[in-house]
Every structure is written in C-alpha cells, then in structure tokens.
Design a binder for these strands. Structure first.
Length: 941
RNA sequence: GCCGCGGUGGCGGAAUGGCAGACGCAAUCGACUCAAAAUCGAUCGACCGCAAGGUCAUGAGAGUUCGACUCUCUCCCGCGGCACCA
C-alpha cells in the first residue's frame, strides 16, 4: 500500500514550480489537443466530467514524450444563464459566483493531475476576452454576415429570451424544458445559411465519429428538387399606364399585351394625353373617364404611370384587385433630370385609402435603374405594405422590348418547391402555409372570414402543438384556384399549418397519390386523388420549372434578452437615421461601435429580473452613449450574444490568450491551428461544432485565418452513469464526487479506473467496487520496485510498448490498462531496464506514482520528460505459436509449432495427434484450410 | 414515422472472419495469521459424465462460409438524433 495523498500533492506542487507543462512560444513540431470549453457550474465536477480530460491528458503526455510541442489548454465558457438565474435568487453578482466556480473547477482539475498549461487559461466572461467576441461580431457585420431582421423566432417564456433553432429540443427550451412559443421580433442573426454547402462538403475530410457527421448532414438538410410556378386561375383585367414620354407602342408594352392575349387575358392600354408635358389632373381624369374598374381590375403603371395609378386609386369608389408599380417612385428625384414633375403632380399620397382600395400591391424595381433610384422602390413598397421585387431589368428602368420580370410580377403565381417534380401530373391541389405572403392577396371575398379565423387559430398554437404526435391535419380553402402547368387543370388552393412557412417557398403542390401527408389531407377534405403518369425529373424541370436546392438549416439567431453575456456592439442614432439609407431601422440608424471603443462593458447597475426586455435596457450608465458619427445622444443595443458565439472561436484565443492588440496573433494561429484532436460530448453535435465550423469558414473568407476546418479529429467521450445505471443527477442522488474518490483511492486510481471501465465512447456505469481493481494494481506496482532483478524478458516489454502505443493512438485506453495488468501478472521478475520502460509507459496514465518510483530509482529528471520507448517489431513476434487443428471447423487439438511453419509441416504434426486421428478415422479429407500461425482445418466427407 | 448506435457470464467488459469470455469486480475454496485485514495460490458460462471426454451457448430466426460475436436478410428489445422539411 502506498500513500497516494502524500505523493500526489508533493508532485503536483513540484511540477507547478518547475513549469513542467509550459507551452513553448513557437512550436517546432506541433500538436493541439483540446477539450471542449466547459461551463463552470456551481455544483463542481462529478466523476463523469473528467473522463475526457483524462483521455486528452494521457494523449498530451504521450505526444510530448513522442517529441511534439503540445498545446493543451483549459478555460471557461463562463457566460450563460445558470449564473444569472442564480444571481436572481441569491442577489450575488454572476461575476462573483463565476469566480468562485472557476476556482473550484481549477482546483479539482489540478487534483486529478491534468497537465494543462494554466498560463493559457481564458474566461469568456472576462472583458479581455469578450472584447474580441464583440470585435468578431463587427467583422461579421461589415461582411454582411451579421444582420438584423424581423422574423418569427423561438421564445422561451420561462427564461424570457429568444433561442436558436439548435437550442429547441422537441419544441422545448434546451435549458429549462419549457415549451417554446413563436414570436415576431426583430433580432440579430448570423448568416450561417450562406455556408450550408461548405459546411456539408467540409465534413468529408474530417476524422470525426460517423454519427456526428450524419447528424450535421441531416441538420443542414440539403435536398435537390425544382421550383415550379403555378399561375393563379383568377381572371384579372389589366389596365396599363405607360410613363413619361411613352406610348402604348413603347418599351415592353406590345410584347406584354401580346403575351396576355395568348393566355386569353383581357387588358387595356391607352396613349395618355400630353405625354411630354403631363399634368396630374389631365392624366388621372383621362384614366378615370376611359376605364372601368371592378374587383378584378389590376392597375399596372410603369414609371410615371405608376404615380398616375396611385392617384387614380385614391379617387376610386370601388375596390380593385390590385396594383403593380414597375420602376415606380413617390418623389420626383431622378438621376438624369431632377425634379421634372415637381409642380405638375402633388407628391403626397393617401396610402390608407390606396391600401383599402386594393387587394394586393406590388412594386418591381430595377436594381441597375439609371433613371429612378432603387431606393424609391423600397420606400414605395414600404408605404404600400406591398411586396417588393428587386431585379435586374433587361434594359435599365424596364425599357427593354421584353421584360419577363414584369410578366412574373403582374400575373400572380405561386412558387412551390418539390423534390419530386416528376409527380407534377398528380398534383391535384395546392397548399400554402398560413403565414404565406400571398394568402391575403389570393383569398376570395367569400372565403375571407374562414381564412382569417384559421390564421388566427394557427398563431395561437405553439410549434409543439403544430407538430404534435397525432398530426391531425387541418386546413381551409382560400377560394382561389391555380393551374397545374402539366395537366392544365384547375386546382384549388388551400392553406394548412402542416405546410411550414420557413421551408422552401412556404407552399407545396399536393400529390396525394404519392405523398402520405397529402393523401391524409385529401381524404379528410375530400380532395381528388387521381394517379397520373410520371414524367422524368429532368423533363419536368426543363418544361415546367427550374432546378433548386433547399436546406433545412436556418440562420443562427444570436440575440438574447439576458444580462450575463457579451453586449452586442451596436449603437442606434435617431439623428443619423435619415430615412431611406441602407441599414436604417425604426429605432434610428445602426452604427457599429468603433473598434477602438471596445469592449462594450457589461454595466453593473442592473437588476437581473428577466422581463422579456434585456436587463441592459434598465442600466442608466450603459445607455449614456454618444453617437460615434454625429456625437449626438444615441442608444445602445440592449441584447447580449448567445453564449455559443463565445465558444465559437475560443480555440483561436488559446494560442495567444493575453494579446490586447488582436484576437490572436496571426503567426501563432498559423503555428498551432487547426486543433489536431478535439474531445467532448456528443451532445454538441449540431450546436457548438456546427457554429465553430461556421466561424472558422467565415474567418477564412475574411482572410483572418488560412484554413477552413477547426477540428481535424474529434472523439466523443461516453457518459459515466451513476452506480444504478442511470444518468448522474442531483435529483436521483447518484452523483459520485471525485474529491471523495481521490481521497480514498488517489488521483492515479481515479484516472486509471475511468480509462479501464470500458470503451471510451460508450456510456458505462460507475462501480464503487470496480475501482479497487486498479488500486490493487497500483499497489502491486508500488511493491514491485522492491523485487526487480535481471531477467531475459525483452520480448514481453517490446510487445507491451507496441500495444500501449497503438492503444493510446486509437483511444483504446481500456485495453491498454488491461495490458499493463496482464504484463505484471505474467512477469514476476524483470530487469531494471525493462522495469523503467514499464514505468515510462505507465506515466501518462498514472503520473504521480510513476514519478515517485522513477525518482526513487535515482533519476533526477522528471519521468514526464523522458522519451517514449520504441519497440522492435521482430522482438514482438513469438518463436513458437499455438496452431489450432480443426476437423470440420471443430477444435480437436492445439499444436506448439515454430512460427512461420508451412502447411506440410503443420499437417504432418496434426495427423500425428491421437485425437485428430480418431476424428479422421475412416473419413476422406476433401479439403484443407491452412492459415499460417493460426490453424489448419480438415474438411471431411 | 425516418435516420443512427448497441444487445456477449452474477456485473463492467475482451475478441471485428480463425481456441468466445482477455483484464477487472463479485463469489467460493486454500495458504499465511491466535484471529481479522492485507497479500499470495486455486476455482469460476450451462448441461451430461467418476473420469477421459462430449453437447449447447454471444437478443430471436434464417442465410453466406471449411469456419460467424464478427458478413447478409427478417424480427424483438434498449439508447441517441430528427420529426408534417414537401
């Protein structure tokens, strides 16, 4: 028996003092071995936590001894909800609890003898760290990768914050299990969808567990298919209004009218009076006198015609179907000749009246317009609450002879995404998501109330209810019909919440003959199912649509309405918020905080009570800010960033943790990264691991780093379960505390037992009796030092070197520990030299006891500075081998023969064996199977 | 529902086409001891047999093979992921 406590504490102090694990400033031959960034919880470690740390520690020690410079750091993912929730209860500031918790964690990790270089320690909640989180946000912002938009987002009513899709599990909050609801909010997103394809392709080269790759692949959810347009069946009557200096024969009009005639659609176009010198009264009056308007009329105006259209609609006594502005504007500001109509038209509009008088409104604007600024289209669409289509016209300002975009805009069509364009003939109805933007436009007056009620009902449901297990499909008819482009049949348009607004186009063609869901819906609502012949995918795409790739992945929502996180470094200035400027929002113009003003510090004068608004909004200090542009009073963004943003880049910071000039020195990043071996739990498969890959790719595009994949090799540790075989948890009362285990058996025993329990990646229960096995082994090692003497046992030690080396490389730590035990069982006597080799092999597993024994042998230098032993392949081979003799596949004898013996020799010996002879008696050998050094099998008849 | 991983003694597990159960725990017996602990030695899948030996056995059933825990198919059970993704 040895006293683990004395020697473990002694050597831990000594190693600290000697800076044994100091990372070299610049590596010659590097390995970066990393554990996933832990959250320092208040409960401290249980024995399940360090299993991965022990594995990376063994690997790091082994790798150092094999001649590499190793970066093996540890730090804290210290921002997050638990510290904040604790603060709400206890009134203790998260900064204080975080400090206490990290101190506790560090102490426990040191107790286990882990060889981290603590001079590289980082903490995500430290301003020195989150300054660079904010800096990275600004780089993303500049590149358009960080943007703010209004969208339906996941909202946790308990934690009072929004969540990313990845953080909603089974419709519930990942943190607290509360059912998540959908809210329409303006939030910050990272544009991870831009990287969908690269995130998918990048997986191929990585040495990662297959299930993790598959989960990421499924999460990205790429599917190839087609987008197909279904034209609305409703017969509109068009009234066309040409622009300044135009005519019914000018620009695209003759082509458009001809196209509509072919489709048997009614249209009317005038030559407006005084086209070179128009006045509002004259033109509007002309239109009102010469055209008739009813519920099917659509007014389409080009350029100044769109203004005439608006003025006409203001004066109508009837409601019309819709209004389309092509290259329209609402102020006489032109690029070529400014303010030409300033006085002949009145530049104010009664938009409320216009909206009330029109079923739908649409603005189509040319992004390369040389006459009307594209901005005018945006403003017009906004004031109209209409759809905006920004496109590139054939000729600037839609002055081409043919403008297909105009056709698309005026003939309402519904786009669907399908992976089965070949079943187009079988599409017998169509379904839109209740949130689809066209719902209002296409619904007929008779169906309006039903549709409105259904949409309201849908909004009340949570995401969980919408996707509930029963999956009872509901829906309502809009009154509208579209035309199936393949069969030319009229098919009804429904809305139903089994169609998701957020995927594809938010609309589907329903093929009940081929799709289970569509069939269920069709049966319930008595919609036709008729089975039509298939056409080929290629043919369908070519004739009726265009190829399209869709992803399930959505952009990463990073705003959190909580306190304990990195503030989003954006300022809003009303003064600078000139209308129309890109980036303006209702709260003023968005201005990124200048880099030299970082970090935006978390204020201390806040209470943390979550109210749905970020606690930062209630800080006086935080909100006393001047606009960096105009120096006037301004307002800060009150939200903080998702903690997964902090952990998205921490592995860069570890290379250069205290740099106050850059987020990490370029040279150091280049020297150490990417991470060679990364170890952590499989629960981060689509969270942290996807985000970190996105970060790295984005930084690659920003030319900040020179590689695209952060983690070359990934291994997941299996959970250690409680002794009862269930997950360790406070509520079950089955938590095993490592402090007690170390106290009773020592850190070396804890380390070796965790490695011995079973395969590294499997879940396995802790056994309170099982650990005594490794403790007995270490006691045996301790006693052995007294008894070694000369012995010719080289073969065994060479075999052991080979076995331990390959087992560490392959993460087969359990069989490595078994091999140590076996070796000692089989070698009662050995030379001092071989004993020392044994200790060196054991050192990464049991660093304390081996160091003590090593120095007792008279060595002055640490065992952990020794060179990893090499083995001689020849010496690992046995001279004599056991060869099995089988008759009909059944073992009848075992022979000891010189290794490498050939078939004739083995056969001769086998046939001489009495038992074999007996089994072969009177039988004919029809075949012999011989595997050298393994077996010979006689097949008899 | 779909996708993935797994199922081996009383227990944790080993063996990835070639002697199933390495290594460890627990258990039983023995040595040492006045005794206990520690340590050392032996036994340890089931069944038949005094023994030599034989038969069965890796969730169930089939198949491929001279030979299957290992490969293929069907089913059962457990765990994890996704979940109306068109």
């Amino acid at each position: 028996m040895y006293n683990s406590k004395d020697i473990e504490e002694k050597w831990q102090k000594q190693w600290d003092k000697d800076q044994l694990y100091k990372t070299p400033e610049h590596p010659k031959k590097k390995q970066y071995i990393l554990d996933m960034f832990p959250y320092p919880s208040g409960a401290g470690l249980h024995v399940g936590h360090p299993i991965g740390y022990i594995a990376t520690d063994i690997l790091s020690r082994f790798t150092r001894m094999s001649g590499y410079d190793v970066l093996h750091p540890m730090g804290w993912d210290a921002f997050g909800l638990p510290a904040e929730n604790y603060a709400i209860q206890s009134k203790v500031h998260p900064r204080i609890t975080t400090r206490q918790n990290t101190d506790r964690f560090r102490e426990q990790l040191k107790m286990i003898g882990l060889s981290y270089d603590w001079s590289h320690e980082i903490n995500a909640s430290d301003p020195e760290y989150y300054r660079w989180t904010q800096w990275l946000f600004l780089q993303f912002y500049k590149k358009g990768l960080a943007y703010k938009k209004e969208a339906y987002v996941n909202w946790c009513p308990k934690d009072q914050t929004v969540l990313a899709n990845e953080q909603v599990i089974d419709g519930k909050c990942e943190r607290c299990g509360t059912v998540v609801v959908q809210k329409l909010l303006s939030q910050w997103f990272f544009k991870i969808t831009d990287y969908a394809d690269r995130l998918l392709e990048g997986l191929e080269k990585l040495d990662w567990p297959k299930p993790i790759k598959l989960m990421q692949k499924n999460w990205i959810g790429r599917s190839e298919g087609a987008e197909i347009d279904f034209l609305l069946e409703r017969k509109f009557k068009y009234v066309f209004l040409h622009g300044f200096d135009g005519s019914s024969k000018g620009s695209f009009w003759p082509w458009l009218i001809n196209e509509l005639e072919n489709k048997k659609i009614q249209s009317l176009i005038f030559d407006l009076p005084n086209t070179n010198n128009p006045t509002e009264e004259e033109q509007v009056g002309f239109v009102l006198r010469n055209a008739q308007f009813d519920e099917n009329t659509v007014i389409v105006g080009h350029s100044l015609g769109s203004v005439v259209g608006l003025k006409v609609i203001e004066k109508l006594r009837v409601k019309i179907a819709g209004y389309v502005a092509v290259g329209g504007f609402l102020e006489p500001k032109f690029k070529d000749h400014p303010r030409i109509f300033e006085n002949s038209f009145k530049w104010n509009f009664d938009f409320n009246k216009i909206k009330a008088n029109t079923g739908f409104r649409k603005v189509i604007s040319d992004l390369n317009d040389e006459v009307v600024p594209a901005e005018q289209g945006r403003l017009l669409a906004k004031d109209l609450s209409g759809d905006l289509v920004e496109t590139a016209a054939q000729k600037s300002h839609f002055q081409g002879r043919m403008e297909p975009a105009v056709m698309d805009a005026i003939l309402p069509s519904i786009k669907v995404f399908t992976t089965r364009p070949d079943t187009l003939f079988g599409a017998t109805y169509m379904v839109l998501a209740p949130e689809h933007p066209l719902v209002e436009q296409i619904t007929t007056p008779e169906q309006k109330n039903y549709v409105i009620n259904y949409v309201i009902e849908t909004k009340k449901k949570t995401e969980l209810q919408r996707t509930a297990l029963e999956k009872i499909k509901t829906g309502v008819f809009t009154g509208a019909f579209t035309v199936n482009p393949a069969t030319k049949e009229k098919i009804p348009v429904w809305i139903a919440d089994y169609v998701l607004a957020t995927y594809g186009t938010g609309a589907i063609m329903a093929v009940p003959a081929h799709d289970q869901r569509d069939r269920e819906f069709a049966e319930k609502y008595k919609l036709p199912i008729t089975d039509k012949p298939l056409l080929s995918v290629a043919e369908a795409i070519k004739k009726f649509g265009r190829a399209k790739v869709q992803y399930k992945l959505r952009d990463w929502l990073i705003s959190r309405q909580r306190y304990w996180g990195a503030p989003i470094p954006i300022i809003y200035c009303e003064n600078c918020g000139m209308s129309g400027e890109a980036g303006s929002a209702s709260g003023g113009q968005m201005i990124p905080v200048p880099e030299e003003d970082l970090p935006v510090l978390l204020p201390t004068d806040v209470d943390f009570l979550p109210t749905g608004e970020s606690p930062l909004a209630r800080s006086k200090k935080f909100n006393q800010v001047k606009c960096p542009k105009c120096n006037g009073p301004a307002r800060r963004d009150h939200d903080t960033m998702d903690t997964f943003v902090d952990s998205g880049w921490y592995f860069f910071r570890f290379t250069d943790p205290h740099n106050d000039k850059v987020f990490a020195d370029k040279k150091k990043v280049k020297e150490w990264l990417p991470v060679d071996t990364y170890v952590g739990g499989a629960d981060h498969a689509v969270l942290h691991l996807l985000y970190a890959r996105f970060f790295t790719k984005a930084l690659f595009d920003l030319k900040i780093v020179g590689f695209e994949e952060p983690f070359l090799k990934l291994r997941n540790q299996g959970n250690i379960l409680g002794p009862d075989g269930t997950k360790m948890s406070k509520s079950r009362g089955n938590i095993v505390n490592p402090d007690e285990v170390v106290d009773q058996y020592g850190a070396d025993s804890l380390r070796m037992y965790e490695m011995f329990m079973g395969p590294f990646e499997d879940a396995k229960p802790w056994s309170t009796t099982g650990i005594v096995g490794v403790k007995r082994f270490l006691d045996k090692v301790w006693r052995y030092q007294q008894v070694f003497e000369a012995g010719p046992d080289n073969k065994q030690i060479h075999k052991l070197v080979k076995k331990i080396t390959s087992d560490i490389e392959n993460f087969k730590f359990n069989t490595a520990v078994a091999a140590f035990m076996e070796f000692l069982n089989e070698n009662k006597i050995m030379s001092k030299e071989n004993w020392e080799t044994f200790l060196i092999l054991l050192a990464p597993f049991a660093p304390h006891i081996t160091e003590e024994l090593w120095q007792q042998l008279g060595h002055k230098e640490s065992i952990h500075k020794q060179v990893w032993p090499k083995f001689d392949e020849k010496l690992t081979k046995e001279k004599m081998v056991a060869v099995v003799v089988q008759v009909l596949g059944r073992v009848r004898a075992t022979l000891q023969v010189p290794s490498g013996s050939d078939q004739t020799v083995v056969k001769k010996l086998a046939l001489a064996d009495a038992k074999v002879k007996k089994n072969l008696e009177g039988k004919e050998i029809v075949r012999e199977v011989f595997v050298q050094d393994k077996l010979i099998n006689f097949v008899i008849k």
